[in-house]
Amino acid sequence: MRKLARQTLICIDPGHAKNTPGKRAGNPVFYEYEGNRRVARKLRTLLERAGFRVMYSCDLNNPNDLSLEGRARAARNAGADLFISIHTNAVNDTSVRGTETFIHTNSKASEDVARAVQDCLVKAIGQRNRGVKRANFGVLRNTYQHMLSILTEADFFTNPTARQWMFQESFDYAYAQAVAQGVCDYYKVEYPSDVIESKPVQDKTPVPEPIVTEDVGAAIVRVKANELWVYNKPDWNARYFTVKKDEAFTVMKELMVNDHKMYQLKSGLFITANTKYVELDGRVEAVSKNPATGTTSQSIRPYPGYPIRLTSPQMRDTNGRTDIQAVQRAVKVNPDGWYGPISERAVRNYQTRQGLIVDGIVGPQTWNHMF
């Protein structure tokens, strides 16, 4: 049973600090930790106005980083009910944009609040919905067994257009308001009515449907050594900076460099694969809930590339395809692989219940809502 807002303690975790490696980009330089702390302060104000009790995981006035365990310990010691880690994202490809929310690999309880926040973030930021995902990130690993725990990545500061917006206060408001709205939706609390909605100061394009992203299924590598070099190319002499124990990174592939294994990271950097110094620590997986059945799977079923509709003769699954059967199971009719009047009527009922366009056609919007 969910607590009342006045009984609920929320711990806001503004990710990183001034000297966290790699969490900066551009000229002038955008420091992720500064943006995270600005959003955290605005989020606290909104949540407190909604009636929640709020704390921070670390001292926002201290530019020095607090360890991931230290942040989690602060939340555990205070008896927090929800842990929200605020971040913006980075990747080597500067064209990438999008919004994603993480829960721990083994967490079940946190999925609903993650979905509520992710839905609001996608609407506010107006970029690609990269989905709710699972990962073994340190702050999630150290909190999920004690409280609800999520980590948000609003957009990519490595993208020049996104970064330009992140320098503006309107981004901080949009981010904070979206997270606060998602939390209020989850706890069924009225969002503060006196909040002035912030309008994004940027060119917005239509929000695409959720997709399977390139990092789903990738392994997470965690540092075991107290300190370890990261390299800017697959060369043992190309030392770039050091990372510390328990930092975790997404692995894109493994390669051999002078008879020793190296991991190429999602960021485009490289790290040793020697198990004396690092260990593989889970995988990044998409979390997809079927609204029709309430069941959860570990992957998003991709849209087949064509609409499923009533035709004469009836559409049917052929050559090993199971797209129509998947739809039939989602709307709870006999999965015979034939899309006839019964299936169409069931899809229309589903579209009505979910607030979608009611046409009996399983196009991209209906498909992605189902899967």
Rank of each mutant, 00 (worst) to 15 (best):
K244T: 07
V327H: 03
A180D: 05
A40Y: 07
M262R: 01
V91W: 07
I342F: 07
K3N: 02
I84K: 06
E285D: 12
Y350D: 05
D81N: 14
L43Q: 10
F83A: 08
Q181P: 06
G26C: 05
D185C: 09
D119G: 13
D323P: 02
D359Y: 06
I196T: 14
N237G: 14
A109L: 11
N106V: 11
R37H: 08
F249E: 01
I12G: 01
F270A: 11
D317N: 11
Q181I: 09
Y303V: 00
N319R: 09
G35C: 03
L265N: 15
M55D: 08
Q145C: 04
E48C: 10
G294Y: 12
D65C: 11
K332Y: 03
G340P: 04
A248I: 06
V113S: 14
V331G: 06
M315F: 02
E214C: 05
Y339E: 07
D119F: 09
F167P: 02
Q365S: 14
N349F: 10
F371A: 00
I84F: 09
D323Y: 08
S288L: 04
V122G: 01
I308N: 01
K42I: 08
V358E: 05
F52Y: 08
F270T: 00
Q118S: 07
Q351H: 11
E34I: 12
E197D: 04
G15C: 05
S107V: 05
G282Q: 02
K199P: 03
I357Y: 14
C120H: 00
G217D: 11
V331A: 07
G51T: 06
P208M: 10
D215K: 05
S297P: 05
T366L: 05
N92D: 03
S267M: 09
I300M: 07
F171K: 10
D112Y: 09
K245E: 11
H104L: 13
G363E: 11
N274M: 15
L151M: 15
V243P: 08
W367N: 07
H369Q: 13
E279R: 13
N129Y: 00
T94Q: 14
A124S: 15
G22C: 09
A78E: 08
Y31T: 06
E254V: 08
Y144A: 03
E209L: 02
D203G: 00
R49L: 14
A90H: 02
F371N: 04
A238C: 12
T322L: 05
